Computed example of a mutant assay.
Amino acid sequence: MTKQVIKADGTLQAYDRNKVMRTIRNYGIAEDQAETVVSEIEKHLYDGMRTRDILRLIRTVGRKYQPAVAERTNVRRAIGMFRPKPDFELYVQALLAGSGYEVEEGRILQGRCGEHEVDAIAKKDGITYFVEVKHHHNHHKMTGLDEGRIARAIVEDVQEGYKEGRNHFTIDKAMIVSNTKLSAHAKRYATCWDIKHIGWDHPADENIAAMVTTKPLCPITLIKGVNARMRKNLVYEGIVTVGQLLAYSPAELAEMTDLPERDMIVIVDRAQKLVCQ
């Protein structure tokens, strides 16, 4: 009989070997070693085991095969450590730019009936989106329906304002980006009204989890040792991804951020290990 595991929200679900394998690979462990790691983890698996304990096992066993695993924290938790503004807004802009979008900073769009401040403008495949960013510190919290309703209203108002000559810039669609999973209701509403909704694991072909693991777009908060002061000073300089961090030497980072160079040497070394996985 399939063992049941307890998710972070307290609900039960059947143990899924494929999910565990995917997490192992996301830690940079080679395919042939991943099979060995999952087999060793399953020796300790029991009915009612918490998913967070499985993740802890993945890190413990995984670092035997990939030492850099020890320098990495949980990706979802790391993104949750960002502040909504400006940290997560900048991070979403970097994610989209790294995924083939032309990205512009947020602006105020004039609609027929009001002004709307949006977090970014993104263009891809001939479609212009306004981007609404939703961040939750608790990475297990669902993103609900309200954001979709607001986005739909903004699209309609801005398009009508453009028709009436109130502005010289219009948008085709709305895009909502959240660091958490979407509720079933939110997914249905977004699909019905053609709102592009990017969440932690949605849609299947373009989600935050996939963007982070397939490109050098890991958040700086993923690096062990990056504390609140470091994060704040780095973000002030526009550095929110590991790739952006590694564009500078420790000496340059220390001068830019007024942080000790010895700390930057450690952080850069750990960042290099994360990117080279």
Rank of each mutant, 00 (worst) to 15 (best):
M1H: 11
Q4R: 14
D16Q: 12
D16V: 08
N18H: 06
K19I: 03
R22H: 10
I24D: 03
Y27R: 08
G28D: 12
I29S: 10
Q33T: 06
T36E: 14
V37N: 05
V38H: 03
S39P: 00
S39M: 13
E40H: 08
E42F: 07
Y46E: 07
D47K: 08
D47L: 05
R56C: 02
L57H: 05
L57D: 00
I58P: 01
I58E: 03
G62D: 01
A68P: 02
A70V: 04
A70W: 03
R76F: 11
R76G: 09
R77Y: 11
A78M: 08
A78E: 09
I79D: 02
M81A: 15
R83Q: 14
D87I: 10
E89P: 02
A94Y: 02
A94T: 03
L96M: 14
A97L: 04
Y101K: 02
E104D: 12
E105I: 02
G106F: 07
R107G: 01
I108H: 00
R112K: 14
K124A: 10
D125S: 14
I127V: 15
T128N: 04
T128D: 02
Y129I: 05
V133Q: 05
V133F: 01
H139C: 10
H140W: 13
G144F: 00
G144S: 07
L145P: 03
L145S: 02
G148K: 01
R149I: 14
A151V: 12
A153N: 12
V155S: 02
V155T: 09
V155D: 00
E156M: 12
Q159N: 14
I171C: 09
D172V: 10
M175L: 09
S178D: 00
N179R: 12
T180P: 08
K181E: 15
H185L: 12
K187T: 07
C192E: 09
W193V: 11
A204F: 11
A209M: 13
A210V: 10
P216C: 06
I220Q: 10
T221A: 08
I223C: 06
G225S: 04
N227V: 04
N227D: 14
A228V: 14
R229W: 00
A247P: 00
Y248F: 15
P250A: 10
P250L: 13
E252M: 09
A254L: 06
M256L: 15
T257R: 09
D258C: 13
D258R: 14
D258T: 13
E261S: 04
M264A: 11
C276E: 15
Q277A: 12
